[in-house]
Design a binder for these strands. Structure first.
Lengths: 352, 352
DNA sequence: TCGAATTTTTGAAAGCTTTCAATTAGTACC
DNA sequence: GGTACTAATTGAAAGCTTTCAAAAATTCGA
């Protein structure tokens, strides 16, 4: 591959001049500039990112660390980040941690040796990111934490307004007439799961409703967790008439478990999701959910990172992205009978 | 960050020796070796991937070029590749092309300057990959093409057995008693779409059934395409009793359009998908589909690439991954009446 | 114990860019 | 046309590693 030395030779200028033309680091007389550019074009020269990065102590790489690209919420996040990064000349190195903090650590240590311009991280369980980020920042790289925050995080962050989203979703259930609301949360050491639970509790308390401890179940953010906890909830006496799920994957499990228990959603049990994944439209019944834009999450993180790279050294930024409600068919007015199990279920059309 | 010079100074050896210890490129006497390793450990040294790549003319980066990570089939592919790459010390740079060959070209040109060890590519529409791959290979980088192949591709490839998958799926429809089979294919300039169509046709011909040209519809690989072509198919006289979709996203649109036309699946129209995405379990009715493992696709590509990196310079490899049928509820025995539209639909349980 | 053969270790160069101090060219003004 | 500037250009060093030829150390056999 051609290098700057070739350009310099052919254009009959020095190496330094070629660099100045390419980077605009010093004034270059117009005819010379044109001559160099012409050679660059004709030869199809592209600067070595390695040599450039080595010299500048910074590459055009952004490390993106996420739990698992296979989880349907994350691709949009990655895409949002990639789009903005790409259009600004940056490239993404994608790393999956499977929520394993030792895998995360391995990625963090390895990525450092690429001298990335920055990192966008969805922290793993019990992440040690706070300490690691310190050394990245010392090396002049930005670190933006998204979706959920490790404990003690004081750097830039982009998160959804989980609390208000869950709060409004729960209000919706209450307005529909539900009095016995249960919640199946994600792992509560994750800030997003915790915030959603807080939003739920806030709405329940404000409405003066009781919340028996058995009505709050914690599990993993997946279908299986949702299904097993739902089985448990439906066996309680009295059972809840509505279940608020920590995310859509959990909600998927809830729907399955309701069906397997011989009950019908929304006739006998209402379900509310969170995330508004594409699948929410497809489930039967279509899932009402709190919509948060993963794409915007990722893109905002990239935007903040680019600002940092451009030199912004102001105080930490905490962007909170608002959610919106997507009302579909999984929530209805509850059956009035004390024990819905024995009640003659009457189909009541959900309000749209 | 510490560098090899520091190690050499502290361990009281030369730079070359440190390198030899780290890479095993020359015999180093045991006590010396231990001394160096001890310093490396205590200082937490990690080699600069940039300097190493620059010198070796090859980095531990693999470029992964795909149409769009947001498309539900691709995350598993990426994950399969990442898992094997990561465990062998390689990192993935992820690039989305949106099936736009100029965007693909931009990525290909830019990636080159990272001196990647190789590329895994799902080619875009009208991809110019064949020419580009040449120059990558000349630079000692492997290029593996997956999922679909650009025209004239003669390099390594990993694809699903699209033809046999579609063939067997269509046989299944025929065995269920369908005589009027329609197909909605993806863009036929994509080899995978074409192969699936061929498999479909093969089964139809072998069964001695007629295939009116209007029963073959081509569209994009998405919901919308599936929906609009289905509307068209259902207006034909006579309409098909079964529709084979080019992939599950198309099938999703087919299901929606059937419902919107006031018909029922599988009672009045049977539907067969391709890919067996996670959503296939969720649709109503659950979608019968041809299952292909994206994870295995990605992982196999990474395996071949690693073999190439390790020095294998044998002839091009063409791995074909077998598919399997996932029978669910979207296919049933067709209603016998000549015009299903007017027939009194009788629910017939699909065989499992 | 000596010389030859082998193994270890060393030092410098190369890979490609950016950057800085130093040099050269050009401009403006008298 | 010459001086005092300013602006443009140059050349070398630095960033960190690998690799190769050469030098030094060790081993082996007699």
């Amino acid at each position: 591959m051609a290098n700057m030395k070739d350009i310099a030779r052919i254009a009959e200028v020095s190496l330094g001049t070629v660099s100045h033309v390419l980077n605009g680091t010093a004034g270059v007389r117009e005819p010379v500039r044109r001559r160099v550019l012409e050679v660059v074009r004709s030869i199809g020269y592209q600067p070595s990112q390695l040599a450039r990065g080595l010299r500048r102590v910074q590459t055009n790489v952004i490390g993106m660390i996420i739990p698992d690209i296979t989880n349907p919420f994350f691709p949009a996040v990655v895409r949002g980040a990639e789009d903005l990064a790409f259009s600004n000349g940056y490239r993404l190195i994608l790393c999956n941690t499977d929520n394993d903090h030792s895998k995360e650590l391995a990625h963090l240590n390895e990525l450092r040796t690429f001298l990335p311009a920055g990192l966008i991280v969805i922290p793993s369980n019990f992440s040690d990111l706070t300490a690691q980020a310190q050394s990245y920042r010392a090396a002049g790289a930005g670190v933006v934490c998204i979706d959920r925050l490790p404990k003690g995080w004081d750097g830039d962050s982009v998160t959804a307004n989980n609390q208000s989203g869950a709060y409004r979703a729960t209000q919706h259930l209450i307005k529909m007439g539900h009095k016995r609301l249960a919640v199946i949360t994600g792992p509560l050491h994750l800030t997003n799961a915790e915030e959603r639970l807080n939003g739920f509790k806030q709405a329940v308390e404000e409405a003066g409703l009781e919340l028996p401890p058995e009505y709050v179940q914690e599990t993993t953010f997946d279908k299986q967790g949702g299904a097993s906890k739902t089985k448990l909830l439906l066996r309680l006496i009295p059972p809840p008439t509505a279940i608020s799920a920590g995310n859509d994957m959990i909600a998927l499990g809830v729907l399955t478990a309701i069906r397997e228990a011989g009950l019908r959603c929304p006739d006998e049990v209402s379900v509310m999701g969170f995330d508004d994944l594409d699948i929410a439209e497809i489930t039967n019944p279509a899932l009402s959910s709190v919509s948060q834009s993963g794409y915007q999450l990722g893109m905002t993180a990239a935007r903040i990172l680019l600002e940092r790279i451009a030199g912004d050294s102001g105080p930490a930024k905490h962007v909170v992205i608002e959610t919106s409600m997507k009302i579909r068919d999984s929530v209805a007015v509850p059956v009035l009978a004390a024990s819905p199990r024995s009640a003659r279920a009457t189909k009541i059309k959900s309000k749209r």
